[in-house]
Design a binder for these strands. Structure first.
Length: 889
RNA sequence: GCGGACGUGGCGGAACUGGUAGACGCAGCAGACUUAAAAUCUGCUUCCCGCAAGGGAGUGUGGGUUCGAUUCCCACCGUUCGCACCA
């Protein structure tokens, strides 16, 4: 224990700031006092501060440090504001890296994962985060994942979870299915491998039935960043339009042996009279039916399916198609329209079929031109940009306008025409208004070992039988070691052999596990119901939820955050939680960047170099970068700043940083260098600067205390009551301004760099204040206390010790935030800026209570100001109270 | 193509509600201390003219609103992120 409770102890302190001793002592004090255990029933408004929990990959990286520092600053700050704060931590512990590590080392994923957790927990502790560790959880614990299984079964009962065989994204490297959200530019989000299409039976969560509310509720989340809401809205992809049915023509009826209608979805029902053909996707049932016995068509369909899965390629590829030889009838005119298979129609969106209006859709236009299909102009240009649609394509063709050549709808504006046409279609039973979403259901089956088992038993007699609640959890065996040849669960009879719960006969347990995004969809609820072994969540969740502040990386803007919102909505529907939205406020912290140095060999192989091994010189004139290796002076290529990553060898290890400079320096650097939402550029000099500031802070307190000991609270009060003046009063004003500024910056604006800057200013001012009178010492005592208090959420260790050094017996972590003293903020004179025609020409000092006329007179009397009148008379004088005077001449 | 964010000194960034542009820090320069170096401390540091006082220009570009614009509006350019043949 690093105790500085008495003056003698203080003098035993080294004059030099010893971060290791300070941090060890402070952390011990917090642990002894159980300072950060959150009380589920404490007085005061609750504050749930949550950081996205880490995957236990082995070591923390700088992104973690930044994330958890932001959360810790807010948690500690809110605690000082009198809020009842919960800040928990856990482990997103299922997932593929554990299996890969297992294969590489021959160690079961469970062992690898638990060892990583133990190590990383030590790292988190050494960074001094104010976490309630009693609530720690790991998603690989059966106590946790049994509730995944339990809710899965409830969702199955309600039809929200269901089984379906469908085309899925298959990652050939990880040998598993990926959700739509996990495919990025046609590649697996983790492996980067080109994704293949496969037909596999799997379980889905019906997230699409919540698409409308998930979309609409985004507007109820003002505490979320605009870009995240935009990304989610984009992803959900709500379009308002009309579903139109085209009855089969004679040839199609004959071919299919029945009546039928081809459904399409359109957002441009106003152009319906301009439809000259209908196009369907290659996988569309009508196309498949027509392809039977039509080798050319079958070959084309096959070609479309095998085509590139790169969506960016798809968007630019040439439009191609074939008539399927069948026709449908226009729902309003009865005209026969040919049906085409077209490579630009997506089976996965809408009905997998479109009505083609070449005159008013660029894709249809290109297609029609190529295959000689008619182009019918049905919307007149409002701006007169065109008379009749003809090649080449103009963007104006796709604009809204007034209908022409559209029978009874001619003359209507586009918006009105959509309504009128929808009504006409509805009257014929051939269409209706509808909302279409881009979002698709969430496939959760993974052919992997290290995940939560799906609680289903397959019985030859009874089919797929849910595991009864009394048999939960379905435990994952923890001693298996995957060998890369598929899911080891499927080769472990002790796991998959079981009895059917219905008929008692021999049955086989489902060996697929759940997508790990299921695990992270509700951990925040479990933190708030910690330790309950009889229920998934309890009333405590309703106390703590919604999370007041959620903090994590922007990379989770869609996947995790959308799934968690969906899952919470389901639990809300089941009456398990009161809130439909889990996260009231979201802060997406920026990436941590560092320099990238690389050299490409003759053979085209890239070799990366750690920035610590490179000297970088930027020419001040040309701005050209010259980078050379420290060891031999050879040149390397500077690639600028980029995200810290293993592959680019530009990571900085948090351990090295904390060992050398301490956790407080690491925390201060991260919070000071950039606002939380922006990317943070690593700088070794910046780290040194942060450390320098802490040493100055330490020395300021040391010097103050050495020169006569700390001033007691009573003595400070007495001096203030006796009245202070001059430099003392100035310093006191700065101190109290700082108090207000820091509270506003952290509490309202969520920016920390400016809060730190203002404390730096305070310390600079205190350094200039060298008087030694009793009043001066009292003011300095107060100023130092304020500096220490204001910094304490950011650098909790050093401030913990300095607070004691300043003579406080009660620990800083239990202290209430001080409010700025209005009397201290008062000023006798203030500086008013004087402008002439908006340009700064002078300054005048005046009493803040001076009436406007007096301020005006003082400004006009200023000699420098008068110079710029150049003989002209002021036409107008604008006075901004307490700030400036602008004279217009 | 659609949607979002952003554009300010040598660098990271500040200026919150339209009111002194460049806080704070880094780097750099000069000085003090030192045998010396490091560390520390003090001062200077947007650009141009000027010994200085002072003046001029200046927040991606062009326009607009205003007594006054980094901030609001319009158009454009650039960077970056997400989505992308979404019917």
């Amino acid at each position: 224990m690093y105790s500085c409770g008495s003056l003698e102890d203080w003098f035993r302190m080294q004059e030099k700031y010893d971060h290791a001793a300070v941090e060890r002592g402070a952390q011990q004090d917090w642990a002894d006092a159980r300072a950060f255990e959150a009380d589920d029933a404490a007085a005061g408004e609750k504050y749930y501060c949550l950081c996205m929990f880490p995957y236990p990959s082995g070591r923390l990286h700088m992104g973690h440090v930044r994330n958890y520092t932001i959360g810790d600053v807010l948690a500690r700050f809110m605690r000082m504001q009198g809020r009842n704060v919960l800040q928990p931590m856990g482990w997103d512990a299922f997932g593929l890296p554990a299996e890969n590590a297992a294969m590489a080392n021959g160690v079961p994923p469970a062992k690898w994962t638990r060892e990583n957790i133990a190590y990383m927990k030590g790292q988190l502790r050494s960074l001094g985060f104010a976490i309630d560790w009693r609530r720690e959880l790991a998603t690989c614990d059966a106590d946790y994942y049994r509730w995944n299984q339990w809710l899965f079964l409830r969702m199955l009962e309600k039809g929200i979870a269901y089984k379906k065989t469908g085309t899925v994204n298959w990652d050939p490297v990880d040998q598993t299915v990926l959700a739509n959200e996990q495919v990025i530019e046609g590649r697996g989000w983790r492996t980067g491998a080109l994704v293949e299409k496969r037909e596999i039976p799997m379980y889905y969560f019906g997230i699409t039935r919540y698409a409308g509310e998930l979309r609409a509720a985004l507007d109820t989340l003002p505490g979320w960043p605009e870009r995240v809401r935009a990304m989610q809205a984009n992803w959900i992809g709500e379009s308002h339009g009309v579903e139109v049915e085209f009855p089969y023509a004679e040839d199609a009826r004959a071919r299919l042996g029945q009546e039928g209608r081809l459904k399409v979805f359109t957002t441009r029902a106003d152009t319906l009279l301009g439809a000259t053909y209908v196009a369907v996707a290659a996988e569309h049932p009508l196309a498949l039916a027509a392809a039977e016995g039509n080798a050319q068509l079958a070959a084309f369909i096959d070609e479309c399916r095998r085509g590139s899965t790169m969506e960016a390629d798809l968007a630019t590829q040439e439009k191609k198609g074939l008539p399927i030889g069948l026709h449908v009838m226009h729902p309003l005119t009865g005209t026969q329209l040919p049906v085409y298979v077209a490579n630009y129609v997506l089976m996965a969106y809408g009905e997998g079929a479109v009505m083609a209006v070449p005159a008013h859709d660029e894709r249809d236009f290109e297609f029609a031109l190529k295959y000689g299909l008619p182009v019918r102009t049905v919307v007149a240009s409002p701006s007169g940009a065109y008379e009749k649609v003809e090649a080449p394509w103009q963007d104006a063709y796709a604009g809204h306008g007034v209908l022409v050549d559209s029978g009874e709808f001619t003359g209507l504006a586009s918006a009105a025409a959509v309504d009128a046409i929808a009504t006409a279609l509805a009257a014929r039973g051939l269409g209706r208004k509808r909302v279409q979403y881009r979002l698709r259901d969430w496939g959760i089956s993974r052919q992997r070992y290290w995940g939560c088992p799906i609680p289903i038993i397959h019985c030859a007699a009874c089919g797929d039988v849910p595991v009864p609640d009394k048999d939960l959890p379905v435990r994952l065996p923890e001693d298996l070691v995957p060998d890369g040849s598929g899911n080891p669960l499927a080769k472990t009879p002790s796991f998959y052999q079981c009895k059917c719960p219905k008929c008692g006969g021999d049955a086989r347990r489902e060996t697929d596990t759940m997508d790990t995004f299921v695990d992270s969809s509700w951990y925040f609820l479990r933190f708030a119901s910690s330790g309950n072994d009889r229920a998934m969540v309890d009333e405590r969740a309703n106390y703590w939820l919604p999370v007041d502040q959620y903090i994590g990386g922007i990379e989770h803007a869609i996947l995790h955050l959308l799934y968690a919102r969906f899952w919470t909505r389901v639990m809300h529907e089941f009456g398990l939680v009161k809130t439909p939205e889990p996260f009231a406020n979201l802060l997406t912290q920026g990436m941590v960047l560092n320099h990238i140095f690389q050299r490409t060999s003759g053979a085209g192989r890239r070799e990366y170099f750690n920035p610590a091994d490179v000297d970088l010189v930027i020419d001040p004139d040309t701005h050209e970068a010259r980078a050379t290796l420290k060891k031999d002076g050879s040149a390397v290529t500077y690639e600028g700043m980029g995200t810290m990553s293993k592959s680019r060898l530009n990571g900085v290890d948090p351990n090295q940083l904390t060992e050398k400079f301490g956790a407080d320096t690491a925390r201060l650097f991260m919070m000071f260098t950039a606002p939380p939402e922006q990317s943070l550029e690593w700088s070794d000099e910046g780290v040194l600067g942060a450390n320098r500031f802490l040493r100055r802070l330490w020395k300021a307190v040391f010097d103050h205390v050495s020169a006569g000991g700390p001033v007691s609270a009573e003595a400070v009060r007495a001096q203030l009551a006796a009245g202070i003046a001059g430099a003392d009063r100035d310093l006191r004003r700065v101190a109290h301004q700082t108090l207000g500024k820091v509270k506003d910056d952290i509490g309202r604006r969520r920016v920390f760099n400016t809060a730190i800057a203002s404390v730096m200013e305070l310390l600079n001012a205190a350094g200039r204040h060298t008087e030694v009178s009793p009043a001066a010492r009292a003011v300095r005592q107060e100023a130092l206390e304020i500096a220490v208090m204001a910094l304490s959420p950011i650098v909790p260790h050093i401030t913990h010790v300095l607070w004691q050094a300043l003579g406080h017996a009660e620990p800083l972590w239990g202290e209430r935030w001080r409010e700025a003293d209005a009397a201290a903020l008062e000023q006798d004179t203030i500086e008013i800026v004087v402008q002439v025609n908006g340009k700064l020409r002078g300054r005048v000092a005046i009493s803040p209570s001076a009436p406007e006329e007096q301020v005006k007179a003082a400004a006009l009397a200023d000699e420098n100001v008068r110079r710029f009148f150049e003989g002209r008379e002021p036409r107008k004088v604008i006075v901004v109270k307490g700030k400036l005077v602008n004279v217009v001449v």
